[in-house]
Nucleic acid binder design. Structure first.
Ligand SMILES: Nc1nc2c(ncn2[C@H]2C[C@H](O)[C@@H](COP(=O)(O)OP(=O)(O)OP(=O)(O)O)O2)c(=O)[nH]1
Ligand SMILES: [Mg+2]
Ligand SMILES: [Mg+2]
Ligand SMILES: [Zn+2]
Length: 566
DNA sequence: GCCGTTTTCGGCCCGACTGTTTTCAGTCG
C-alpha cells in the first residue's frame, strides 16, 4: 500500500524533526498529513495520474507536501526524508518511543552522553550518568530504567473486540461505586478503530478523588503510571494501558467529546471555535469567562454551531467541512453591466457611482459588440474610445475601480465578434451567444467550446440562453462545456437577471463539483438592475455555491491576474 | 508546513501530571 508508505515517511520526518528541534507547527503538519494519508480512501497514485493538482485539495496537504508525495510516487522516497535518516540515528527514534521520554530528553542524552540506542541509555542510567544531566535527577533516572523495563512487556495495539471486553468489565466495576454517577469508554475504542492503543475511560461524580482511588483498586492493575486529581494512567497485568479521566457531572459532555478525539479532530473543531471567539476544552465551551455548560456532546456541537458528528467519523478527514453558503456581502463587484454606449440606460459614471454605493470595489462595463446592431454594439474603434474614457473616469472617480470589458458576441462558427487585438486590451471579456439558438447539440457545444478556447475570454455569459417561461435553453452539452471551461480557466456566468437565472441550480452544483468558477453577473442595463445580484445569490445558494466557487468574491487584482492558459 | 468571514502573512488547541525547578519544561492525554 503506497498510501501507508507515504504516511510512514511523513510520520518519520515529523518524528525526526522533533529531535532536530524544528518548529512544532511544521512537525504537526507532517504528523497530520501522515494521519490523513493513512486514512485516505483513494490511492494517491490514482489521483496523481488523474490530475496532480487534486493532491493539494486533500486536507493538510499543501504545495510542499504535494511535491513530496509526487517525489515519493516517482522515486520511492524523498530527499528531505533521506537527508534526515542520514542525520538522525535510528536508535534515537527507538529511545523516543519510551514512555516519558520525548524529543528533548532524547536529544539531551545524545548530545551530552552520545547515547544513540536503548541499550546505551540503559547502561548510562545504571551507571548513574543520567541524574547528572541538567534537569534530571534520581527519579528521572529510575523512570528511564522503568520505561525501558516495561517497554518490552507493553502490549502493542490491541484488537478492538478485546479492548471492548476489558472496557466493559472496567465500566461494570466502576458502576459499583457510589461515587460514580456516569462512566463511559472514550478514545479510539469509542471511535471503533480496528485496533486501539489503550482503553480510555471517562467517569463523573461529585468526589473525583474517591473515584480515582476506587479505580486504582481495580483488581487487574499491575502498576500505576501516574495519578492526579482528575486523571490517572495504569497498566493492567496483561500489559494494556488504561487511562481514566474524571470530571464533574456538568462537564461530562464536554469531557466525553474531548476524550473521544481524535486528537486531530479536536484540534480542528477547537480552531473552528476560536474563529467564533470561543474556546473548547474538556470542561465546556467558553465565551471569555462565561462558560457554556455541556452536559452532553450535543451541547458542544450546538455551542459551536455544527451538526452532531458521530464518534466513528471524528478522524479529521473532512467531517467538519460543512458548506458555508455564499452570502450577498461576499460579492466584491459587478462583472457584467451595460452602459449607454450600447443598449444600457445609464452612463458609465452613473453605473460606477451606483456600484460604489452598493459597496462594491469594482464594476466591469461590458457593452455589446457590433454584430448586435439592435443594441448599438461597439466595434473596435468605439471600444478603444471607451477604454480611453474609462481610463479618464478612473482618475476622476474615487472609491470604485471601473474595469474595461465587452460582452462579445459568439458568432455562428464560434469565432468572436471582436479581434484579439482589442480583446487583449480589455480587463473582462464575456463571450455570449445571442443568435442561432437552434443549432444541433454538437454544433452548439463546439461553438461555445471554441469561444472558451480564445485566450482572452474570461467568462461565458448566460450559458444556456434560457428566458424563464419564454424561451428554452438551447441544446448544449454542459458537461463538455464545463470541462473546457475548467481546462482554459474560464468562468461560467450565473446571469442574475430574474428573467434568465441562467445557470440553474443543478448545473451550478455540477460546476462546483467540476471545479469550474462561477461569475455572478447582473447583466444590468441600468443602475436599478445592479440589485439583481440578490436573485443570483438565491440561485447560487440553491446550487450549494460557496465564496470560493465565485469569481467576483475576489478582489479585482486577483481576477485580472488569474491566467488563462495552462 | 498549512491556511484564509480579518489574514496570502502570521497565526497555529488546550490542559494535567511529573520532576526539578524557585517558576517551568517536558511529556502526555
Ligand atoms: N485536544 C486534545 N485532545 C487530545 C490530545 N491528545 C489526545 N487527546 C484526546 C483525544 C484522544 O482520542 C483521547 C485519548 O487519547 P489517546 O492517546 O488514548 O488516543 P486515542 O484513544 O485516540 O488513540 P489510541 O488508539 O489510544 O492510540 O484524548 C491533544 O493533544 N489535544
Ligand atoms: Mg486511547
Ligand atoms: Mg489514552
Ligand atoms: Zn447578453
Amino acid at each position: 500500500m503506497e498510501n501507508q508508505k507515504i504516511a510512514q515517511i511523513f510520520q518519520e520526518i515529523g518524528d525526526m524533526l522533533e529531535i532536530t528541534g524544528d518548529s512544532v507547527f511544521k512537525i504537526r503538519s507532517y504528523h497530520r498529513a501522515a494521519q490523513v494519508v493513512a486514512n485516505y480512501p483513494y490511492h494517491l497514485r490514482d489521483i496523481y495520474e488523474k490530475d496532480p493538482k487534486l493532491l493539494d485539495k486533500i486536507p493538510g496537504i499543501g504545495k510542499s507536501l504535494m511535491g513530496k508525495i509526487i517525489e515519493i510516487l516517482d522515486t520511492g522516497d524523498c530527499k528531505k526524508h533521506l537527508q534526515l535518516v542520514k542525520q538522525i540515528k535510528p536508535g534515537l527514534l527507538d529511545i523516543m518511543k519510551l514512555r516519558g521520554i520525548g524529543p528533548k530528553k532524547t536529544k539531551l542524552f545524545h548530545d551530552e552522553l552520545s547515547i544513540d540506542s536503548v541499550a546505551k541509555l540503559k547502561s548510562a542510567a545504571k551507571r548513574g550518568l543520567i541524574r547528572e544531566l541538567s534537569g534530571m535527577g534520581e527519579k528521572s533516572e529510575s523512570e528511564v530504567l522503568k520505561s525501558i523495563e516495561s517497554y518490552g512487556r507493553l502490549k502493542a495495539r490491541i484488537p478492538m473486540y478485546e479492548a471492548l471486553d476489558i472496557a466493559e468489565e472496567i465500566i461494570s466495576y466502576m458502576k459499583k461505586s457510589d461515587a460514580v454517577s456516569k462512566v463511559e469508554y472514550a478514545g479510539s475504542l469509542r471511535r471503533r478503530l480496528e485496533t486501539v492503543g489503550d482503553v480510555d475511560i471517562l467517569a463523573c461524580g461529585d468526589k473525583p478523588e474517591e473515584i480515582i482511588k476506587y479505580f486504582c483498586d481495580f483488581p487487574f492493575i499491575s502498576h500505576i503510571e501516574s495519578r492526579g486529581n482528575t486523571k490517572t494512567t495504569v497498566i493492567l497485568e496483561n500489559g494494556m494501558q488504561v487511562d481514566l479521566r474524571v470530571v464533574s457531572k456538568d462537564d461530562f459532555g464536554a469531557a466525553l467529546y474531548y476524550f473521544t478525539g481524535s486528537k486531530a479532530h479536536n484540534i480542528t473543531t477547537r480552531k473552528i471555535a476560536q474563529k467564533m471567539g470561543l474556546k473548547i476544552n474538556e470542561y465546556g465551551v467558553f465565551k471569555g469567562n462565561k462558560k457554556i455548560i455541556c452536559r452532553t456532546e450535543e451541547d458542544v456541537f450546538k455551542a459551536i454551531n455544527l451538526p452532531y458528528i458521530i464518534p466513528e467519523m471524528r478522524e479529521d478527514t473532512g467531517e467538519t467541512d460543512f458548506i458555508k453558503p455564499i452570502e450577498i456581502s461576499d460579492i466584491k463587484g459587478e462583472l457584467h453591466s451595460h452602459s449607454d454606449w450600447s443598449d444600457g440606460e445609464n452612463t458609465i459614471t452613473e453605473m460606477a457611482e451606483t456600484a460604489k454605493k452598493t459597496g462594491y470595489e469594482f464594476i466591469a462595463i461590458t457593452d455589446h459588440s457590433a454584430s448586435l446592431k439592435i443594441a448599438h454594439g461597439l466595434d473596435k474603434t468605439r471600444l478603444e474610445a471607451q477604454i480611453k474614457e474609462i481610463e479618464t473616469l478612473n482618475k476622476k472617480i474615487e472609491g470604485i475601480k471601473i474595469l474595461t470589458g465587452a460582452e462579445v458576441d459568439i458568432l455562428r462558427d464560434g469565432s468572436l465578434d471582436l479581434p484579439d487585438s482589442i480583446l487583449k486590451k480589455l480587463d473582462i471579456v464575456i463571450a455570449s451567444v445571442h443568435t442561432y439558438f437552434r443549432l444541433t447539440r454538437e454544433e452548439q457545444t463546439a461553438r461555445i467550446i471554441k469561444a472558451i478556447s480564445n485566450p482572452f475570454v474570461k467568462i461565458i455569459g448566460h450559458p444556456t440562453g434560457k428566458l424563464i417561461g419564454m424561451r428554452e435553453a438551447y441544446d448544449i452539452d454542459l458537461v463538455k462545456v464545463m470541462e473546457a471551461a475548467k481546462k482554459h480557466n474560464v468562468a461560467i456566468e450565473l446571469n442574475c437577471n430574474p428573467k434568465r437565472l441562467d445557470l440553474s441550480a443543478e448545473h451550478l452544483r455540477m460546476a462546483k463539483d467540476m471545479g469550474v468558477m462561477i461569475s455572478l453577473g447582473t447583466d444590468s442595463h441600468g443602475t436599478s438592475q445592479l440589485s439583481y445580484i440578490k436573485y443570483g445569490i438565491f440561485m447560487a445558494r440553491r446550487g450549494w455555491l460557496e465564496k470560493k466557487n465565485i469569481l467576483n468574491t475576489m478582489d479585482y487584482a486577483s481576477i485580472l491576474s488569474s491566467k488563462h492558459h495552462e
